[in-house]
Design a protein around this nucleic acid. Structure first.
Length: 474
RNA sequence: GGCGCCAUCGUCUAAUUGGUUAGGACGCUGCCCUCUCAAGGCAGAGCUUACGGGUUCGAGUCCCGUUGGCGCCA
């Protein structure tokens, strides 16, 4: 039998780190099993669902490279089907109309709470006669449909990640499956859709464990075959609370904007709650798919660590990305910061970006590091830079370097290194005495790429002009 | 409040399914390289496996309890 799994987000906001991880595990399982991955948008909550969110989620899925065979389906399109299923359960005697008003339910709940009893529905409308229903209808009451839960017995789940779990049926009440507005309730819509789509494995966050017994009872009431369940642990923020907006960047979009790579994010996400026996850290997508299995998933929640994500992203930039790919991505970020435009020399841009390959961990770090390559006037970045220029002899040293570089024939990395080292020797300067001020003079800062690489890329014209300018300002 | 899930270095995790000194990765510290910052290389600190019992020749691993965190239902 073909494996069929689905990712079913609610379109109430951007795709979340947690959601992306759930999607990833479903996707990996489908790919590993040569199964089908389905996307379903759970937009039953009409008040909070938006089309923008749906579009945003789809875009994020595509950006990450998680493709789907079927969908995206909208749960709201199946409303009529859900209503039909609800009536079917009523006909079968597995569900019934309930006319209790929200106020009545609230009063009763409070009474139960006061007596320290669990606040569950008392089954008042379980067996209404036709006449009683007629009276309620005439009063203008709109009924909900409630599912008739068994009063005894246990419901067992054999969870693929968590192992066996048991629930006592008597603790569950007759829950609403269809609201008076005709809108199906989450637990009901999920079961109907999962059945209709022939889902074989329900892989979702473990915050849904408690919903599972209700859903299983629905499958049984219909006489439908049960899917397998796999509840994967949640992702938490640094404070141990469920990851949310409060924790800063929890939306995938923010990582896209900061210049993270999709492969690096996928790699980081798979490491949250899954590992191979040899604790391998870096996986290509193919490797991930090959090696993934649900029985190696962790059971405990994981805290999201932005530092490790950053490290992995750096690894991907340095070792997985081709130099031209980095240049392509870098150009977008530099253009967004208005450091370059169409008129900027492409070869120059490309050389500048390549210089920083070893230093950046996200592409977003690039503009700040290389802005001096593109600015006409450079300014001193900090006190350290000012101090470097304030040292004795700096004016004289820089003047000599300027004279030398203005006419030296070979402006290559090797040529520059030779010329400048020679200058140090001739005047018996320590190398640092010369290198540091030159660096500050051309870049305005004390850190950056190798000095000669930097000079070679900048070119004679810029280098000489900048040093001259600095000498004049001292 | 009821029910459920979970518990190994600060963080993510591994441990031949009960058998060496509890391994790796991020982060941290130091050293090497070096014109700086990175990168890279090497080394180090860090877990009495939440706590307490039990089973066993032997427990991170199995059982019971406690505590704590998280989740679901109101």
């Amino acid at each position: 039998m073909t494996v069929r799994v689905r990712f079913a987000p609610s379109p109430t906001g951007y795709l979340h780190i947690g959601g992306a991880r759930t999607a990833l595990f479903n996707w990996l399982f489908a790919r590993n099993q040569k199964g089908v991955f389905i996307l379903r948008i759970e937009d039953t909550d009409e008040a909070r669902s938006t089309e923008e969110s749906t579009a945003q989620i789809l875009r994020s899925m595509e950006w990450l490279g998680m493709n789907w065979e079927e969908g995206p389906f909208l749960q709201s399109d199946h409303k009529a089907k859900h209503q039909q299923y609800a009536s079917q359960l009523v006909e079968m005697g597995q569900a019934y109309y309930c006319y209790c008003s929200p106020e009545e339910l609230e009063t009763r709940r409070k009474e139960m709470m006061a007596k320290k009893l669990p606040p569950k529905y008392n089954g008042q409308c379980r067996s209404l006669s036709a006449e009683q229903r007629k009276i309620f209808e005439q009063e203008g009451r709109k009924p909900v449909i409630r599912f008739r839960m068994p009063d005894s017995g246990v419901t067992k789940i054999n969870d693929l990640v968590k192992g066996p779990i048991q629930f006592d049926n008597s603790l569950l009440d007759d829950f609403v499956i269809l609201k008076s507005s005709g809108v199906p309730v989450y637990n009901f819509a999920v079961v109907c859709d999962d059945h209709d789509m022939n889902i074989t494995h329900v892989i979702r966050g473990d915050d849904h464990i408690s919903n599972t017994p209700r859903q299983i009872m629905l499958y049984k009431a219909f006489g439908w075959e049960l899917p397998e369940f796999a509840h994967i642990p949640m992702i938490l923020g640094p404070d141990g609370a469920r990851l949310s907006k409060r924790h800063g960047a929890a939306a995938l979009d923010e990582y896209i904007q900061q210049g993270y790579l999709p492969e690096a994010i996928m790699n980081y996400l798979v490491l949250l709650g899954w590992a191979t026996e040899d604790s391998q850290q870096i996986f290509s997508l193919t490797e991930m798919i090959e090696k993934f299995s649900l029985d190696r998933c962790a059971k405990n929640a994981a805290i999201f660590d932005p530092e490790k994500l950053k490290w992995l992203n750096g690894e991907y930039i340095r070792h997985k990305l081709r130099p031209e790919e980095l240049v392509q991505l870098g150009i977008k970020f530099l253009a967004a910061k208005k450091l370059i435009d169409e008129s900027t020399d492409l070869e120059y841009i490309s050389q500048v970006i390549s210089l920083e390959r070893e230093r950046i961990r996200t592409i977003g770090e690039l503009p700040e590091l290389v802005d001096f390559f593109f600015k006409e006037k450079i300014e001193l970045a900090d006190d350290k830079a000012r101090k470097t220029l304030a040292k004795p002899n700096v004016k004289e040293i820089l003047a000599k370097v300027e004279t030398e570089l203005s006419h030296t024939p070979d402006f290559s990395v090797a040529g520059l290194e030779q010329v400048i080292r020679q200058l140090c020797e001739t005047n018996s300067y320590k190398t640092g005495e010369v290198f540091h001020p030159v660096r500050v003079a051309v870049s305005g800062r004390t850190t950056g790429p190798g000095l000669f690489e930097m000079l070679a890329v900048l070119g004679r014209e810029r280098v000489v002009a900048r040093i001259k300018q600095t000498v004049e300002n001292i």
